[in-house]
Design a protein around this nucleic acid. Structure first.
Lengths: 377, 377
DNA sequence: CTGAAAGCGCTTACAG
DNA sequence: CTGAAAGCGCTTACAG
């Protein structure tokens, strides 16, 4: 096996990359949409007024069967498609949702997005994404404004300061639901929001490690959304307290494996460390890599558990113990709530969201026997 | 360490999940948008005609300084925001792009999406996502139609049959750019598209493994977008041919680690297998896991290389040799091309897109010595 | 069951 | 430099 470096020499090489642009019959300058047949064209073809066409395409009941047929035939023949923007302008409703998020690729965010998308598609809503690049207040405000200008509903993922700021910055009167950390107290004022119980999940993972015999559990944290103690941190701390274990200092790990790797290097140097809980699976990946490079076996000498149960975690070696959270379900619930608000169909009733589930795999086990621990000092 | 099963017993547990819905001042029934001040309200407040307001918000030069000031002040005071949908309807341009894709979470797709998003944000375009759930022709057509109805530009990721079908189904006259596999022949007719040279990338990775001394290289493939030989497969095969090596049968792996795992189990049983190229890093993860469970060391007995260089690949143990492709850059280029088409600003000139780069890490090495190989039979 | 009118909030020529 | 008119493609009352 090669050396210990994580990113060994890269042999850059030649490769070809292509791109081809042609300007064919790409429509008229500036104009971006089709200027296909309108409701009036259909009306003319079917020999009715355009209001009747409107009734047909809206499924209005009071239309004589024969004229409905004529209209439908004309629609079909002309290839008529109703303009979504005209519909939105005239009716005031847009059947669209835009998701405000600081990230689109980390597993939790991506899975929530996917859940929202599924439900939006089912309800024939179009889906927009607005990325919060910065947590700076005016930058956040600008993104929120632009999203609001779209005229549809909003879902804000408030797992980080940018998202929390965005949720706060949404103008009153707009339909919005927040996906938030377990709230100690209502976060966004008088609005609907959804969450999973991260606190309970962290509590359980920590208890699992303690039950294996570890004296304490170290915690490598993801960034928190506010200055308050994050739910995951709180759950970890509570489990330690209940077990009478001392609580080590929290190590900040960031979101990705690089941050986990850095944290892992620090922890690997301390022989007293036998169990590490990580704020997400990417952090755990980096921590395990660092432990490996330091020659500390997982789970033989150190147990590691992650958070989120990302798709690859079951296939790592060792496979990763992790807490599975149903982010896709959370996203579906968020959209469902938004839909209720926008359509006023229901009184915004709670949806079922599945509970966190600890998945025990190879990366967690009992601590090394006393003598071993002593010997390694 | 636990048993060999990849997904050992899951200890499901209790947890709490919360959701809270309130109906506060959520706006009027049905109406989804703000009905804030309009251009006419501003005009009244500034004591000008609404056309003048239009000129001001569009930065038209011919407006007297003093009246511009008055209008701006009124805008500020009333909190006026120009309606994007009215703008789109009246002007015919929408400054929006919707991405048609079969997937949003696999690394390549997600990174392309991210690149498109970055450039869209820079150009103040709003971004929509339309997911192609099925490759069924009528289903694809429906999604394309709905996306087209939005009135903006389209980017189609055509890495799979659904995407290829969508690209084909886009009505003529709409601004669209395709992100495609290395085209042998122009795929979508008279339209702009972008690609990376997957063929060259696969060729190089295969050559790398052959150069280490392996007699041949097995290939676990991602699904291809068409019935034609996929570029990655072609590159792999060409490298084998040039080296005079025999080409084993391609093994279909799907997109995720589970497929890689299944493929790996088959390959692990054949002691003649000493090198495996995988169509993406997730497949490689599954393959390596399967080899591990079969007791075959990586890279001691079998070398494995992946494709795409996903963020976690450098932190696996062994760290993964992979071919890095600049998907984010590809996404940025795709949007740039679309922007050029829509705004007619440039003659759709090629953008620079970086070349594939082989990253050699721990998972690839020389084959085992002859005797070892013989002994293991 | 169906038509004629007014309007959603803006832009685009056309006048002055 | 600034106003008055017509219209983008639809919906929503209002009439009959």
């Amino acid at each position: 096996m090669g050396g210990g470096a994580v990113k060994p020499g890269k042999k850059g090489t030649q490769g070809e990359t292509g791109e081809q642009g042609r300007t064919g019959e790409q429509g008229k300058p500036g104009k971006t949409g089709k200027s296909g047949p309108s409701i009036r064209d259909v009306a003319a073809a079917a020999d009715v007024s355009y209001q009747t066409v409107s009734r047909v395409i809206n499924g209005h009941p009071s239309v004589k069967g024969s004229t409905r047929e004529r209209v439908l035939a004309a629609i079909d023949e002309l290839g008529f498609r109703r303009s979504a923007t005209a519909l939105a302008l005239a009716s005031g409703r847009s059947r669209s949702v835009t998701v405000l998020t600081a990230n689109t690729t980390h597993y939790g965010y991506a899975a929530i997005l996917q859940g929202i998308e599924e439900e939006a598609r089912r309800s024939a809503y179009s889906l927009g994404i607005a990325v919060l690049e910065s947590a700076d207040e005016s930058a956040v405000r600008a993104v929120v404004q632009r999203a609001a200008d779209t005229g549809g509903g909003l879902v804000v993922i408030a797992y980080d300061p940018a998202g929390v700021g965005a949720l706060r910055a949404v103008p009153a009167g707009l339909p919005v639901v927040g996906v938030v950390e377990t709230p100690a107290t209502p976060p966004g004022g008088d609005r609907p929001w959804v969450w999973t119980d991260d606190r309970a999940a962290a509590h359980e993972a920590t208890r699992h490690l303690l039950a294996l015999g570890h004296e304490t559990v170290h915690y490598v944290a993801i960034p928190s959304s506010t200055r308050r103690t994050a739910p995951r941190t709180a759950g970890w701390r509570a489990a330690l307290r209940e077990a009478g274990a001392s609580a080590p200092r929290v190590i900040q790990g960031g979101w990705g494996p690089a941050g986990g790797y850095a944290a892992g290097r620090r922890l690997a140097g301390d022989p007293a460390v036998t169990a590490i809980l990580c704020g997400n699976d990417d952090l755990a990946l980096g921590v395990i890599r660092a432990l490996h490079e330091a020659g500390r076996a997982v789970p033989g000498e150190v147990s590691v558990a992650g958070f989120d149960d990302a798709p690859g975690s079951a296939y790592l070696t060792p496979s990763l113990t992790s807490v599975r959270l149903d982010f896709a379900g959370l996203g579906r619930a968020a959209f469902g709530l938004l839909h209720d608000v926008v359509e006023q169909s229901a009184r915004v009733a709670p949806h079922p969201v599945s509970v966190p589930e600890l998945i025990v795999r190879e990366s967690s086990g009992p601590p090394p026997a006393r003598e071993d621990a002593r010997r390694s000092r």
